[in-house]
Design a protein around this nucleic acid. Sequence first.
RNA 1: GCGGGGGUUUCCGAGCCUGGUCAAAGGAGCAAGGCUUAGGACCUUGUCGCGUAGGCGUUCGUGGGUUCAAAUCCCACCUCCCGCACCA
Length: 960
Amino acid sequence: MELLHRIEAKWQKAWEKAKIFEADPNPNQKKCFVTFPYSYANGPVHVGHAFTATRVDAYARFKRMQGHNVLFPWAWHWTGQTIVGASERVKLGDKQFIRALREIDGVLEEELKKFVDPVYMASYYTNENRRTIHQAGFSVDWRREFYTTMPAFNKFIEWQYKRLREKGYVIKGTHPVVWCPRCESPTGDHDRQEGEGVTPEEYTLIKFRYEDTYLPAATFRPETIYGVTNIWVNPDANYVEAEVDSEKWIISETSSNKLKEQKRKIVIIRCFKGKKLIGKSVASPIDGEPLPILPAIFVNVGNATGVVYSVPAHAPVDWLALRDLQRYPAILEKYSIDPTLVKNIRPIPMIHIEGFGQFPAIEVVEQLDVKDQCDPKVEKATKRLYKKEFHSGILKENCGNYTGRLVHDVKTDIVNDFKERNIADIMFDLPQPVIDKSLHQCIVKVLEGQWFIKYSDSKWKRKTKDALNQSTIYPETAASWFLSVIDWLRDKPCTRKSGLGTRLPWNREWIIETLSDSTIYMAFYTINKYIDQRGIEPSQLTPEVFDYIFSGKGSLRTVANKSKISNQLLKTMRDEFLYWYPVDMRNSAKELIPNHLTFFLFQHVALFAAEHWPKTIGVNGMLTIEGKKMGKSKGNFVTLRNAIEEYGADSTRCALLLGAEGMNDPDWRSENVQDVKNKLESFYRLAKIIINKAKDEKTGQLEDWLFSVLQNRVKVVTENMEMLKTRTALENAFFETWNDFRWYTRRKASMETSALLKAFNIWIRLLAPFAPHVCEEIWSKMNTKGFISLAKWPKYDRKKVNPIAEENEILIKSVLDDTSNIIRATKIKPKKVCYFTAAQWKWEIYQKALKISIEKGTVDKSYLMAEIFRDEKLKKQAEKAAKFASNIIEKINQMGRTRKTTLMMVGKLDEAMVLTNAKKFLEQELNAEIQIYIEDNPHRYDPKNRGKLAKPFKPAIYIE
RNA sequence: GCGGGGGUUUCCGAGCCUGGUCAAAGGAGCAAGGCUUAGGACCUUGUCGCGUAGGCGUUCGUGGGUUCAAAUCCCACCUCCCGCACCA
């Protein structure tokens, strides 16, 4: 343990001293700008952050070694309510919370006292976390560090919002929220006792004229108005006649209270029971036809207006309620309604769906055997039918302008048209009750004066899709997620009244909210170094300055004069921005796709030229701890600091990266991390042996093999790193390559060759992005110059690829495998093992078969035989040839194309020689005498006549 | 409900897009042997079943289908996880 920690501290210091991660523009070098979403300064960075950040760092280091000028900056997010809330909990003495701070975060008592100041708390964690990030070995250029409530950053955000507003992307509007009328505040998901996940739903109200008033019937399915037969109200509930804005409505009493919070002016005229309405009739807004108002107990006045219209052909509950009245006319007598009126009501079909007749609602009711309107099965019936009708229903010929269209296409059109014609309105309500933590019933309130980012803007969406298309997304499957988020996104409230952050420049009572002030800050990294070093005052950072730097607007001289920033400095900042931008790679966990990452795209599209839009976005899964979701309150939380202290930075980094890639969720298991640590330590020991013992200069086939397979490792690691497949890359760089080294030393029976050291020089560089400290330490012992962090990334060298050498080793491995398989099956203790390699004529047939198979896809026997007969020599032994041919055809046909081509390229292997060269090795492995013959050697030792079984790449074996 | 990602051999986890080299990489665990004879060190071998000759049989959520050939392609179903807004 001590060892790895010592090494890590040593190299972290050395890197810092040499400033090797400080990146400045260099026009002669290709740049690579990588970023990680800054973390909130409300707690310690944990291993989940570290997973994402390690991916970024490994990529940064990889690119740096490839010769790119890599910038990896870091910053801290202070914005928002969270830190303030945390600080308040300390102030209030929240025991559980404070305990977590002490025990998990390791905050000392004297510090804890100062946490009553949120700013102190944020700076505490910023300082702590900065140290941790250093200890993780992330290759960060710290000169560009900032936090989001810094005055200079405030200026940047002010510029951003000013410009967004000018472009029409920031608008003032109203917004429905779940609201507690007693607390007079929005009730977020976390503040709820009941109703988690419930959000306001928008109902369409269809207004039916009744005398000089309207009955606004609430529905989610306004298209069904073409099938309306009557109106339902609850006879026993309370209704009111009220003046709503400039109209008179009849609605439930509860809904009149709700509407007051939805920007409506309500004046109650009179109250009455629902039964007063029963038997009256309203006029259909479509054709003015009279429709009776009938009683239905399923009508819930707690829901929307408490008035619904009836579509018995398509709504099971409507059909059931109607059927109930038809079956039990006694109910009607109470309201003195003529039963024949109800008897005569016929459902009106208006939606066609495949597999159903005229009256789908009736069919569904019968299928499910729903008893009456109070049967719980009503819900199931409704859901089933609604889903079908919504997705595949087509409006019939009685649906006016909308005839022939799909329900799910036509819905919004209908609502808009009806609103325009003043026959529809809207109302918000909660589909399920929401109770807050203080046990108050919540309602929907439409907030006014809120500022929104207009992510609903269709032109903006389209442009953002362009940005998505011109960028690369890893893994590819995430792209479709982005696409659906872009489509789905609506206007986003971007301001709050409380918390830390930047004030809205034109309306200073509002603070720009967290997800809205962190969309383009990567641009700020490019210039912050100068603001810091050259002492630029925040007041000098006028919008014109940012315009000049980021968009090249205005003349240098004017902007410089006005801001009192020197021409030269301003120009340098502009150049630095132009050098680093766009962001080449931004990586985050997948949970940020539906918000941050998509906002990041939107905002770049809005504020930057297309050449500055993000190049690559990487996404990864979310870390779990020992199989469970990470959470401080659950005590299931591992800070990065603790992980590093226990296992070391390199082990932590490697264990994280080996956990998963793509969108899979990695799991942090202490057992695994410990294991990786052990592996790294033995890697270090192995390295020392290789370095110290290298002397034997002789090389041969085996060395050719080693360098040949290493080329493949280089290729695979490089390709996977390019695609951010960090797990595959590390797995190859570490384990697979290690296995190559094992085979080599086993075959060679020695670790003392200089070829091994030469090969190791490649290996260590492949591993450096992942375990930089250990690699740096080993590198320094290797008679090399400079840091491995800056060493050249190994290059795939085609010339070193040697298929014959590789095939030789495959032969030896497979001969060894076959032999031990026989030994296992027969339980012989071998004294003597004889190998018989295939005769020349077999090779000739084999080659012919291969060739045909490559050319035609498959070989068949007759074709192959025809080829064989063309050859005089083979013709003479046609019988043997035919037998052999049928023997190999199946196997060859089963081979993949690449394998076939490789074998073709390799041609005839001198197997006898290969085996003879490896004789000593085989003898040692099998602990037996080895003899090698060509199968037709008349002097061979072959008592059971096995020799004739020999095939190319598969010598025959005799064991005794 | 909408959207996204999964279900592989004891476990973790590749492979699936581009069907054959797949009884299926790699790691872990377990077992045996070696080395050392102290080690959470190292090296070999085995780890679905059967097998006295390198083989055979049965596997990749379930059920169908396409194909000479399917973990991989198509259809249906079952099932698990994640996100859904003003909250970071």
